[in-house]
Amino acid sequence: MDISLNSHEARVFGVLIEKGYTTPDQYPLSLNAATNGCNQKSNRDPQVDFSEAEVRIALQGLRMKGLIGGSMQTGSRVEKYRHNAREILKVGERAIAVLAELLLRGPQTAGEIRTRAKRMRDIPTLEDLAQLLAELEAAGFVREVPGGRATKYKQSLCGTLHPDGEPEPVAPPERPAERLAGARPSPMDAPTASSAPAAPPEELAERVETLEAQVAELQTTVARLVAELGA
């Protein structure tokens, strides 16, 4: 299924899914509640500051794609919105929770996804998560992020929301000889008398004069001690 969302629609869609799981008593969401959910600081990457007008436009776009529906509850003049992810995406509850987590927080490792999605739906093991990711990947909703040291996964509904970054640089493996050479200085690197720069004659003369004065002082001290002991 080919679904393409802009960054505002992706955030709003993720919020509607999340709140349906985490705050069912306050679901479906009003425009104000959806806006607050988009702008909250926890469990969000990137953090945003959407206006209600921007969220309203995103809701209209999602409604046109069939991903959400609106309703007016009895005795209320405020329209409220709920997602249609199960009906449109044709995947299970836990897979929808994984997708929402990736929409809201960007690329993550399997361990991060399992831990963070737990607030919506429990995923008992990493093997269970692997099956969910495979299901979402087969449907075209999730894919692996290229490069990097640890395998990460990202949502595929909005390409501009979390663009792929440059792969992490990986240093080539160090050979044992290079490791030893780096840990132990080579004899060729040790300074030698011939390679040391020669001091100017004036500096040498000053050093000699200082040493001679120190020797003379020591000789005087020794002579005094000998005289005292002899007495």
Rank of each mutant, 00 (worst) to 15 (best):
L62V: 02
G66Q: 04
R149K: 08
T151R: 13
R119V: 14
S186H: 11
P107T: 00
A171Q: 15
I123K: 08
V145A: 04
K118T: 01
R114N: 06
G70N: 02
R143P: 05
V78G: 02
K80H: 06
Q73R: 14
V170K: 08
P173R: 12
K154P: 10
I113M: 03
E87V: 07
R175F: 14
E135Y: 07
A97S: 10
E93Q: 09
L62E: 00
E144P: 07
G147R: 08
L161K: 06
I113L: 09
R143K: 10
G75M: 03
D122L: 10
V170M: 10
E178G: 13
A181Q: 15
D128K: 11
G182S: 15
M188E: 14
G66L: 08
E178K: 15
A177K: 15
T125R: 12
H83P: 11
G75H: 02
R86A: 04
K152L: 09
G75I: 06
K118E: 06
G148S: 07
T74N: 11
E174C: 15
I96V: 12
D128E: 12
D122S: 11
C158N: 09
E178Y: 14
V142G: 07
P107C: 01
M120Y: 03
D122G: 04
R149N: 09
E101G: 06
G70P: 01
G140F: 12
L104H: 04
L67W: 08
L102Y: 05
K152P: 03
I123M: 09
G182N: 15
P176R: 12
E112L: 05
Q108C: 04
I123H: 10
M120W: 02
Q131R: 14
E144D: 10
S186E: 00
P187V: 01
G140V: 06
P124A: 13
E87C: 11
L157P: 04
A95L: 01
P176K: 14
E112V: 04
Q73A: 13
A150R: 13
G66D: 02
I113H: 03
M120R: 03
A177H: 13
L161W: 05
E144L: 09
E168S: 13
R143A: 12
G92V: 10
V145T: 07
A85I: 00
L136F: 07
V142C: 05
K90W: 00
P172T: 09
G182Q: 15
M188K: 14
A150Q: 13
I88N: 03
N84Y: 07
L89C: 02
G69L: 00
E174M: 15
L102C: 06
I113S: 05
G165N: 12
K118W: 02
Q131T: 13
Y153G: 02
P176G: 13
E137Y: 06
L104Q: 07
R175W: 14
R184D: 04
G66E: 03
R77C: 00
A110M: 08
V145H: 03
L89E: 02
P107I: 00
K118N: 05
P172A: 12
E168A: 14
M120L: 06
Y153A: 00
G147S: 07
A171T: 14
R175I: 12
G182K: 15
L89I: 02
K152W: 02
V145L: 11
K65C: 00
A150C: 03
G106P: 09
V78P: 01
E79F: 00
